[in-house]
């Protein structure tokens, strides 16, 4: 299992290389450059700036230079946040964004799976209908609607949690953002779990387990739950992508100093190195999370284990 994981991890390198190459050229296809909107800039100074950052070179040369510095683990300097390297900028916000994202995914699993399972076990009961109604709402409402609503109720009216903002080490500031981010994922996971558990409970091997005279509790936990979780695990990859992009909005709504804003700002500013840095970091995260989902899948279902 460990050797398999290591080999699969190594296999991510070419994928990452493709991501780097594609995004490098795509960004440069976008009109404008990092120093275009500073209207007062005399042409000579602009030319000097571009020479200093190597932007006067042919794109191919720029690409090779970028790869070279990347191979030393250097994302280069930011074009817009003068005196900051991209590594410093991302390093400031990433721990908070990661904590938020991880909290949201864990929350989604911890609430979505039990909700879906209870709904399946009480199929067509009141609990089932409430869970499914909640699931439809959760999937339909976007984060920028849910976030302010939650802040209104729990922050302003009930005064249980801070409305927005951040103070290092204070988990209370993370509760509402994580919940906002997790809500649609909770809803989707609940639906997935319910549907697949209902199907598994009708399957022949569950009938065999019941024919053995085992109590329903053992039938559920030993025989039914693992196959029922397969679709949920498949969804973890897309779910983490959703959480990552969703965190851009949620960090803005709740005023959290995460790294999400650098992606948007960097893209608007044509801050090439910053955007590339964010793409590489988020891209690697996505790849690793998908790999984890794959390995989990193999644990749940021996038929898909590779040799």
């Amino acid at each position: 299992m460990l050797r398999l994981a290591a080999r699969r991890l190594l296999g991510l390198v070419p994928t990452l290389f493709v991501i780097v190459t594609l995004s490098f050229f795509v960004i440069r296809l976008a009109p404008g450059g990092p120093f275009d909107d500073e209207q007062t800039l005399p042409p000579e100074i602009k030319a000097n700036l571009e020479a200093a950052y190597g932007l006067d070179q042919p794109v191919a040369t720029q690409y090779l230079r970028y790869l070279q510095s990347l191979s030393h683990g250097d994302f280069g300097p930011s074009f817009k946040f003068k005196d900051f390297s991209v590594t410093e900028l991302i390093g400031q916000g990433l721990p908070l964004s990661l904590t938020l994202g991880l909290a949201a995914v864990l929350l989604a699993l911890a609430l979505g799976v039990p909700l879906g399972a209870f709904a399946a076990l009480r199929q067509n009961g009141a609990l089932d209908y409430s869970v499914m109604a909640f699931a439809v709402l959760g999937v339909a409402l976007p984060g920028f609607v849910i976030g302010p609503l939650l802040a209104l109720v729990f922050g302003l009216h009930l005064r249980w949690l801070p409305v927005a903002g951040w103070s290092p080490g204070e988990w209370r500031y993370l509760v509402l953002p994580a919940l906002t981010l997790a809500l649609p994922v909770i809803a989707y996971i609940a639906r997935l779990t319910r549907g697949s558990l209902l199907e598994v409970l009708r399957s022949n091997f569950v009938r065999t387990a019941r024919a053995k005279g085992l109590p329903e509790r053992i039938v559920l936990w030993r025989h039914a739950i693992r196959p029922a979780l397969l679709p949920v695990v498949s969804y973890l990859g897309p779910a983490s992508a959703f959480v990552m992009t969703g965190s851009l909005v949620v960090e803005t709504v709740f005023g959290l100093p995460g790294s999400g804003r650098y992606l948007v700002q960097g893209a608007i500013n044509r801050d090439y190195t910053l955007v590339m840095g964010m793409i590489i970091v988020y891209g690697s995260l996505m790849l690793v999370l998908n790999l984890i989902a794959d390995l989990l899948y193999g644990w749940l279902d021996p038929r898909v284990r590779y040799e």
């Binding site: 399957s203 022949n204 091997f205 009938r207 065999t208 030993r222 693992r226 749940l300 279902d301 021996p302």
Partner: peptide, 16 residues
């Protein structure tokens, strides 16, 4: 009272 079924391909739990 024990019972065996028609379809052995799907009657055993795949992950056990």
């Amino acid at each position: 009272v024990a019972m065996i079924f028609q379809d052995p391909m799907t009657s055993l739990t795949p992950h056990l």
